[in-house]
Design a protein around this nucleic acid. Structure first.
Lengths: 190, 190
DNA sequence: AACGAGGGAGAACGATCGTTCTCCGGAGGT
DNA sequence: ACCTCCGGAGAACGATCGTTCTCCCTCGTT
């Protein structure tokens, strides 16, 4: 097993365990066991736990946004349909058995006050999501894409946290309905 | 100092420390020091840490909802204005220097997978908020109060988490604008 | 004045944490 | 065949955690 494979296996284990149970509830020993690597290898890939935490969040950010964008471009026939497709993707995600809310909000709540890195990555993730939603709104012909993007991002974050706490995927449907109403009002100049 | 005063001081310390830095980052010794009580007293008021955590969340839930309701009834002249007043209160809250997001979402992200009690209290808090917002929507004459309440609650939760991560109180304004658009669309039938 | 109950201060305990160290076996070069 | 190096397994370390125990002082009662 070479360095890159070890890194990947460690990050896979970290994503599974950290996302499921929170960061401080998972020890380095359990990570090592789940990843199937030696402790020495773990520490030469990630010199400290906070390095692993930050790498986990960065990789998840990239994957999450890539997966969302791929779904939207595939499932929306016209630019107008794209913003609503976001909420269809959310419904799929909420229905996954291991769904447990937004990894960045969870990490921020747990460590945001203690770790600068966690706060920074969470901020970047939300800023990137806002930027993406603003692009979708602009392409859909909304008169004020920045304001619409911000409002859509509120619905997305609200749906994620509500679905996480309640465990009910239909939250995505309610958010979709609200988004449709906002888009209907905003397309004609609101 | 009698039993009740000790309990109050412990809960005050817990609320300050747990909300600021997360639950697992705060030890019982620091709690004891901040509360100014002895360790023996602390453990006779709350036999274990998770008891204190649950009591902290329950008291915060009651206070948070009472404060919100008081603000709304005082600042909204007509029933129609009440739903929007919620977002004015959010703006005040977001602007407070110690604002760090929703205590229940934060706790849920940190311990929801581990502790049943935390998950239960978080769920109850969000359900009570939904019920309150639905009442406001009904009193405002919305045609489908349940759907409107759910949508408003998405905006509220989205605004709280976005404001927490970004640190920008104006998130409340964007949520208010979105809520106004939804209410305008929903008041006339749907 | 003598005594017992109870609380304060903080040491002590066992567990667990993140991190480092030790030991050992196996692969590769001479 | 021998030496060297590297990675694996896991013991070990110091810190810190939640929790309990010890010691001592104070106070109310008789």
């Amino acid at each position: 097993m070479d360095h890159d494979e070890a890194r990947t296996r460690i990050l896979d284990a970290a994503e599974k365990l950290f996302y499921d149970r929170g960061i401080q509830s998972v020890g380095m020993d359990e990570l090592r066991t789940t990843a199937g690597v030696s402790l020495k290898r773990l520490y030469q890939c990630f010199p400290a736990k906070h390095d692993l935490v930050e790498a986990y969040l960065r990789r998840r950010d990239a994957r999450w946004r890539t997966t969302l964008a791929a779904y939207v471009t595939e499932h929306a026939d016209t630019p107008d349909a794209r913003p609503l497709a976001v909420f269809d993707w959310l419904h799929d995600w909420f229905s996954a058995p291991d769904f447990r809310g937004c990894a960045f909000i969870n990490s921020f709540g747990e460590l945001g006050a203690t770790s600068d890195g966690v706060g920074r990555v969470a901020r970047e993730h939300k800023r990137a999501l806002l930027s993406y939603l603003t692009d979708l709104a602009r392409d859909a012909g909304v008169t004020e894409p920045a304001a619409m993007g911000a409002q859509l991002s509120l619905l997305v974050d609200g749906a994620i946290t509500t679905a996480a706490v309640s465990g009910d995927p239909s939250t995505a449907r309610q958010a979709r309905t609200a988004a449709a109403a906002l888009l209907a009002a905003g397309a004609s100049g609101g």
